[in-house]
């Protein structure tokens, strides 16, 4: 606002408004980013599953899935909302967490467990 008031003509004000709008757009991405860790008796790679956070099987729609090597990183670009993040590997190690995505990108690390 201070920037807007200090702008002494219309052109400058428009430029300031555009700058604010553009910087808002640049930070408007939302989602999760993080890495995958796994104990030695689990396998690599790990499949990460992103679905709607629903208990009913028929409603638990899978949005995307991605294979990540142990120690590797990932980013999912998601609309704000509730999701279920599941991870599994070939040896039966698992991870599951419900997560609410708000505006912005949140850190989300996955630690696999032997079941």
């Amino acid at each position: 606002m201070l920037l807007l008031k200090s702008a002494d003509n219309v052109g400058m004000r428009i430029l300031c408004l555009l700058t604010i709008l553009l910087s808002f757009q640049a930070y408007s991405a939302s989602g999760l980013k993080g890495s995958v860790q796994s104990p030695k008796d689990c396998a690599s790679p790990v499949m990460l599953w992103v679905s709607l956070d629903k208990d009913q099987y028929k409603e638990r729609l899978l949005l995307m899935h991605s294979e990540v090597p142990v120690g590797g990183t990932f980013q999912f670009y998601l609309k704000p909302g509730d999701y279920q993040i599941r991870a599994s590997d070939e040896k039966g190690c698992e991870f599951m967490k419900k997560v609410s995505v708000a505006s912005g990108v949140s850190s989300f690390n996955i630690l696999m467990e032997k079941k």
Binding site: K33, M64, E67, V68, G72, T73, F74, Q75, F76, Y77
Partner: peptide, 8 residues
């Protein structure tokens, strides 16, 4: 308009 990346 990315939807996912590995690695990030």
């Amino acid at each position: 308009n990315f939807l996912a990346t590995t690695p990030y």
